[in-house]
């Protein structure tokens, strides 16, 4: 086994050319659990944590934000990122514990592509663009095309996920999740809701209730017909309830060791109802 610790993307591509089947790691919070429990024994590992160009983020001139794949969750909980991307800040705050948030990254969430990854519903709600780079080329993929299934994504083995770009929206946004306790929990069901006043649309994305994150397009378009998203200051309980019911219908949960499909379907409906109520009560 070899472990490479490149200091730049160029060096990382060299390492990747040398060991094409290497596992890429950022904070290590997923891979090390697998190693500690003897579920995998990787042959080669390339650690991306010291690549400075992946650990930065920037606000772009077209009202979008690009976040490097190595930016740890703790940086999204505070400051300008929290101000401009409140749903991402809320999701970041629910990731594991402070120790996990100091190590874990969006790049890791994307690389692992678990439907329970807390960053992913936010990226789906915001229609994020995922940036992939190889030695010779780079490409941008919509998050909807990037995540293919449970722990499956569209990254080619010669590519490194360098970051994501998301829009700064005008409108309320938030993230909510259900787990067996408050702190340090992998979600049983989660949801991200974002209102986009400029386009008079609402986006809701669900985590841990399907093989990929699920966008509830039917519930979204139904709600737009019930509510003027730009001027409404409150929402009828019956509309919020019906929105939750429609969201739940679009989930595709399964029974597993963390919960039952029935409970998950119920839970995402409640989360959606709560989120839309929060959006129109402040």
């Amino acid at each position: 086994m070899t472990v490479a610790v490149p200091l730049s993307l160029i060096e990382a591509f060299d390492e990747l050319a040398r060991t094409p089947d290497a596992r890429l790691i950022q904070g290590g919070t997923d891979l090390m659990v697998e190693i500690n429990f003897n579920h995998v024994k990787p042959v080669d590992v390339i650690a991306l944590r010291r690549i400075k160009e992946l650990r930065t983020w920037q606000v772009n001139s077209n009202n979008t934000i690009t976040i490097g794949s190595g930016v740890p969750y703790q940086e999204m909980e505070v400051g300008q990122l929290k101000e401009l991307l409140p749903a991402l800040a809320e999701a970041a705050r629910t990731v594991g514990s402070p120790q996990i948030r100091a190590a874990g990254t969006l790049g890791g969430n994307l690389g692992t592509c678990s439907p329970a990854g807390d960053g992913l519903p936010v990226l789906f709600a915001l229609d994020a663009i995922v940036h992939l780079q190889s030695l010779k080329s780079s490409r941008d993929l919509s998050i909807h095309e990037f995540m293919l299934g449970v722990k499956r994504n569209a990254r080619h083995t010669n590519e490194i996920i360098t970051g994501v770009t998301v829009p700064v929206l005008d409108g309320w946004q938030g993230y909510a999740k259900v787990g067996v306790r408050n702190a340090m929990v992998i979600s049983v069901a989660s949801a991200c809701l974002a209102v986009d006043k400029k386009n008079n649309s609402v986006r809701i994305a669900l985590g841990a209730v399907g093989p990929t994150i699920i966008r509830c397009r039917d519930a979204e378009s139904w709600l737009v017909q019930q509510l003027d998203l730009t001027s409404a200051t409150s929402i009828d309980t019956t509309i919020a309830q019906e929105f939750g019911r429609r969201v739940a219908l679009e989930s595709k949960p399964i029974d597993d060791h963390r919960s039952t499909a029935e409970y998950r379907r119920h839970a995402v409906g409640v989360l959606a109802q709560r989120l839309i109520t929060r959006a129109y009560t402040s």
């Binding site: 472990v3 610790v5 790691i25 290590g28 659990v33 944590r49 120790q99």
Partner: peptide, 19 residues
Amino acid sequence: LMDGDAVCSCLVMAATAVG
């Protein structure tokens, strides 16, 4: 503590902590 952050040492691959 790793570079000033509190982290779980069980989730750090030691060889990646060079530097």
